[in-house]
């Protein structure tokens, strides 16, 4: 089963290696990983998507809590959090196909951020599922290159402060 984890970490050297090392040691694949600054300059947020059982998830969450630089680990449940991802895709676009592609892009609110003689680059922000739909739609046109940031997320504003389910810790 897939889970999105949001991990607050101290902004210190090696912290990403310590976290990802825990997953590697147990043979779990990290499907996506996004690291970036937060509202506090000394804290970064790691958002990761992993495929593992609930039991494994609890075990790895507890192991992560033992890391000195990890401040908080929470799971972003699908109903309790907003998740977004950014996609850049370079699509084959000879002049006669441009209009069709751009109207396709409009549906997804994709922006054309670069245009060449026979290709263009779309920028799309959306849920990972929306990005996948967009990707499938432009694929027949010929995808030259594609990159995604990996998902990031926040607990919903309507949820209680610090939303995002704090994984059950046995204390």
């Amino acid at each position: 089963m897939r889970h999105t984890l949001s991990v607050h970490v101290e902004n210190k050297p090696g912290v990403l290696m310590r976290i990802t090392g825990l997953f590697v040691r147990r043979g779990f694949n990290i499907e996506s990983l996004a690291v970036g600054p937060t509202e506090r300059p000394d804290v970064s947020r790691v958002t990761m998507r992993v495929d593992c059982s609930q039991h494994s998830l609890e075990q790895i969450e507890k192991q992560m809590h033992k890391l000195v630089n990890v401040l908080r680990v929470s799971e972003l449940g699908p109903d309790e959090a907003i998740e977004r991802e950014l996609l850049l895709v370079k699509v084959t676009a000879p002049p006669e196909r441009r209009a069709e592609l751009m109207s396709l892009g409009d549906v997804f609110q994709a922006r054309v951020i670069d245009l060449g003689p026979d290709a263009l680059i779309f920028e799309v922000v959306g849920t990972p599922e929306e990005l996948e739909s967009f990707e499938e739609l432009v694929r027949p046109h010929g995808i030259k290159e594609l990159v995604r940031t990996g998902r990031i997320g926040l607990g919903r504003a309507s949820a209680k402060p610090d939303a995002g389910r704090r994984l059950a810790l046995i204390r």
Partner: peptide, 14 residues
């Protein structure tokens, strides 16, 4: 160590 609880054998009372 909370990570030892339930790691290998389920704990009825941790």
């Amino acid at each position: 160590d909370a990570a030892e609880i339930g790691k290998l054998r389920n704990a009825d009372v941790p």
